[in-house]
Amino acid sequence: MTDTLPATDERLAEAIDTFNPQRLLLITDHPPALPQTRLDHWAYTGQQASDAIDALPSVDLAIIDGDAGFPSAAAAIQLVGRLRDVTATRTLVIASSARTGALPRAELIGLGLHRWQDSRDPDRRRRWFHFALQDYKTTPDWLNARHWANPELWDKFRW
Rank of each mutant, 00 (worst) to 15 (best):
R127G: 00
A7I: 04
A95P: 08
G101E: 05
D135H: 03
L25C: 01
A15I: 05
D54V: 14
Y136H: 12
L143I: 02
A102G: 09
P35C: 12
A88L: 06
E107A: 14
V59A: 00
L39V: 09
A33G: 15
R120Y: 09
L153I: 07
R11V: 14
P32I: 09
A62P: 00
D135V: 03
D51K: 11
P151E: 03
P31A: 05
Q78Y: 05
T100R: 12
L79Q: 00
W142Y: 08
T18A: 14
R126P: 01
D155S: 15
K156F: 12
W148R: 12
R146Q: 07
D17H: 15
A149N: 15
Q117R: 08
H30T: 13
N150M: 05
L34C: 09
S72N: 07
P31R: 02
L103V: 08
L103G: 03
Y44V: 01
T2W: 10
I53F: 07
Q78N: 09
P122Q: 02
P71R: 13
V80Y: 00
T100Y: 13
E107Y: 06
D141P: 05
L83V: 01
E10M: 13
R23A: 14
D3F: 14
A102E: 05
T2S: 13
P140E: 01
W128F: 04
A15V: 09
S72H: 06
A132G: 07
L153C: 09
R90P: 04
V93M: 06
D155K: 06
R125K: 06
P35Y: 12
D40G: 15
F157G: 12
D29M: 07
L26V: 01
R23V: 10
D40W: 08
R90I: 10
P35M: 14
T4L: 15
R84H: 02
L133V: 13
F70K: 00
T89Q: 11
G81K: 06
Y44G: 00
N150Y: 07
R120L: 13
A145V: 08
T4V: 13
Y136P: 04
D135Q: 06
H41E: 10
Q117V: 03
F131A: 04
L12Q: 00
L79T: 04
G101K: 10
Q47I: 15
L25W: 00
F70S: 00
A106M: 13
V80I: 04
D85V: 13
D118R: 10
L83C: 06
A149Y: 12
G101P: 08
T8S: 09
D123H: 08
L83P: 00
E152Y: 12
A102T: 06
S50D: 08
P104M: 07
G81Y: 05
